[in-house]
Design a protein around this nucleic acid. Structure first.
Lengths: 267, 267
DNA sequence: GAGTGGTCTAGACCACTCA
DNA sequence: GAGTGGTCTAGACCACTCG
């Protein structure tokens, strides 16, 4: 943790210190996050009072609270009226894109991501797909099946359905492009929100063929619907992982509850 | 959505309108949540501007923003600089306690929760348990194994380890108490934060015996460490669900990312 | 260029914790 | 009762979107 006030952005408009031209509260949050991971708050892990931090960083208490809210939702610190905040755990690396993009995730682990295209078709959307992608009856979709690999080893079967606007872009990508997500981002398709559901299913014949497992053997399934900032669905995907290759992890609290438990729906 | 300003708490100190003596922003959030689920914002689902909402509810813009932040993190609305907020999806029921407590979850679905105690022992903590519960070498723990049922049908094996302070309370509970969590809350043990990891494992002999499945058959595993407001671990639990009985669900976004994907760790 | 959400400030009061 | 986080206000300026 710095003892001095945060410097304003460096002279040049480009990248600055720890965080690039970000908001003030993000710089404070980044600095506090580092202080936490380096154990700067001692054994007990009690943070300074908000007022003290405000003075230390030369910002208002509101800004400090914004920074602390970030750490709170990441599960790094507690908060309770009447007492100082306490360090909860060490930082876990996690970012939205890491969850959204197999490629990004693989690289963050130092593994080499791969994608083997199995099929790509344009066809009428079924009822479930129309529901998920909010399409009109009779609308078409692009459906893609890919085998995803880590350093050459099969890990996951990805079945993604795109609405026409997005699918047309994907269909034009060379077959050997590994990250569709990154390509779409460069074409101006923004992924900002996603709903995930995680459960277990038995491998069907296609899963078995692609993953090299037996039919009926268990797979960890993640279904995901992603939308852009306007709320328009841009992707509906169903990923099936071989057991032992992946685990999903989440933090929640009384204050911010994101995860929920459901009875399994029919499909 | 009401057109009038929110009423202050009713005269009596007891429960008031939609929300009990809660903060102003929570009342606004609850009202907006209802407006969203009843489709009050029309087909396009564009919310009024923050300023308009502030005037409508007779509160400051800051309070409106606090309310909207709640809906944002629940995945109900988008937010983007320059444009109105847009309704993302309908409300999903979810609460922290619903995820934490099997009993609470079951009841919210209208099912009858059950718990059949298999074993309860006090024993030295192993290395992993000391790590999770932040205990000293040589410390002891209370370890409980229970079969959880929904309307009589086996659903999940729960293996929970408590530190002594908490375990002593649990050990004194009658064997037929269904919800340990609720009992602990009444004894002043607070659960406020939890880290969850979800993956697939094969049933061991004990799992198979309790759940009535075959050894080696797949189970959906949720591991969870729960802490109190001071950051002290109060529970370390490993729940194994029969496939098809449960799914976990989470919303994340560029703004608030709670879920992450991991390579499976050894255990 | 008008409208909108994002950020930041300064100050106020309250509810709660803990010595 | 002092200290602390939770809530709320009023106002300001900025960055971005879109007609």
């Amino acid at each position: 943790m710095t003892d001095v006030a945060l410097e304003p952005d460096q002279s040049a408009p480009g990248p600055a210190g720890t965080e690039r031209g970000a908001a003030l509260y993000r710089k404070v949050a980044a600095d506090l996050r580092e202080a936490i991971t380096t154990g700067a708050f001692g054994e007990a892990g009690r943070l300074p009072a908000e007022g003290a931090l405000a003075e230390q960083y030369g910002v208002s208490r509101g800004t400090v609270r914004q920074a602390l809210a970030v750490l709170r939702s990441d599960g790094l610190v507690t908060s309770r009226r009447g007492t100082r905040r306490v360090v909860l755990g060490n930082a876990r690396v996690q970012s939205f894109s890491e969850l959204l993009s197999f490629t990004h995730w693989a690289r963050s682990m130092g593994e080499e991501p791969g994608g083997i295209l199995d099929s790509l078709v344009r066809r009428p959307a079924d009822a479930a797909e129309r529901e998920q992608l909010r399409l009109e009856p009779g609308a078409e979709v692009y459906a893609i099946v890919r085998l995803r690999t880590l350093s050459g080893a099969p890990v996951m079967v990805e079945r993604t359905v795109y609405p026409p606007r997005v699918g047309e872009l994907v269909a034009e990508l060379p077959a050997d492009v590994v990250s569709h997500t990154e390509q779409l981002r460069e074409h101006g398709i923004l992924f900002t929100d996603a709903d995930h559901t995680i459960d277990v299913v038995a491998a069907n014949a296609e899963d078995a063929r692609l993953l090299g497992c037996r039919r009926g053997s268990p797979l960890l399934r993640e279904r995901r619907r992603t939308t852009d900032p306007t709320g328009t669905p841009v992707e509906w995907s169903q990923d099936r992982y071989l057991p032992g290759t992946v685990a999903f992890s989440v933090h929640n609290s009384l204050a911010t509850s994101a995860l929920s438990r459901h009875a399994r729906d029919s499909d």
